[in-house]
Amino acid sequence: MDLTTTVAVDEENSVARVSLAGALNTDTAPAFELRLQDVVDKNYALTVLDMKDLDYISSAGLRVIFKAAKQTRGRGNKLAAANRKPHIDKVFEILKALPDMAVFANEQELDDYLDSMQSQVRGD
């Protein structure tokens, strides 16, 4: 599955909205990282990741988001995730509950777990 991103900017309020549609995974994360980095580099006070149409997220996608969050925080700005579907929200809940704990043997094990949790919440 591919990932489509669109960026809408409200210059007056210094807000960028990055809408994601499709899957943010190992294949799509590198291009998304470049696109998101371009937005972060413009130093908006708030960057919103609109996940209304995001169907799947892997550890590669999470790394891109966490890297951008760290960069925006370091610049005194904010990064927010909005409109998360229940299965995407579940991934963020899991990571919030275990922020500093390495629970998985490797990246593939983490991706398999995230895939399983997202499938379970979707009812697949």
Rank of each mutant, 00 (worst) to 15 (best):
D2N: 07
L3R: 04
T4C: 03
T6P: 05
A8T: 15
D10I: 11
D10G: 06
E11I: 06
E11L: 12
N13D: 14
S14M: 08
S14T: 12
S14V: 13
A16K: 09
R17D: 12
R17W: 10
V18I: 11
V18F: 06
V18Y: 09
S19D: 03
A21L: 06
A21T: 04
G22H: 05
A23C: 12
N25F: 03
N25V: 01
N25W: 01
T26P: 01
T26C: 00
A29R: 02
A29Q: 01
P30I: 15
P30M: 14
A31M: 03
A31G: 06
F32D: 08
E33S: 01
L36Y: 06
L36D: 08
Q37P: 06
Q37I: 08
Q37E: 02
D38E: 14
V39A: 01
V40W: 00
D41M: 03
K42W: 11
Y44R: 08
Y44Q: 03
A45D: 15
A45R: 12
A45L: 14
D50Y: 02
M51Y: 11
M51S: 15
D53Q: 15
L54D: 07
D55M: 11
Y56F: 11
I57E: 09
A60W: 00
A60T: 02
A60E: 00
L62K: 02
R63L: 03
V64L: 05
I65H: 02
F66K: 02
F66C: 00
A69D: 13
T72F: 04
T72Q: 10
G74Y: 12
G76Y: 14
N77P: 11
N77I: 10
N77L: 10
K78A: 12
K78F: 09
K78Q: 13
L79F: 10
A81F: 05
K85A: 10
P86N: 12
H87G: 11
I88S: 01
D89V: 09
D89S: 10
K90G: 02
V91T: 03
V91I: 06
I94Y: 13
I94R: 11
K96T: 15
K96Y: 09
A97H: 14
P99Q: 08
D100L: 13
M101A: 15
M101R: 15
A102C: 10
F104R: 01
F104E: 12
N106S: 09
N106P: 12
E107F: 01
Q108A: 13
L110K: 03
D111S: 03
D112M: 04
D112F: 02
Y113W: 08
L114Y: 09
L114Q: 14
S116R: 15
M117C: 15
M117H: 09
Q118W: 13
S119N: 05
S119C: 11
Q120R: 13
V121F: 07
D124T: 14
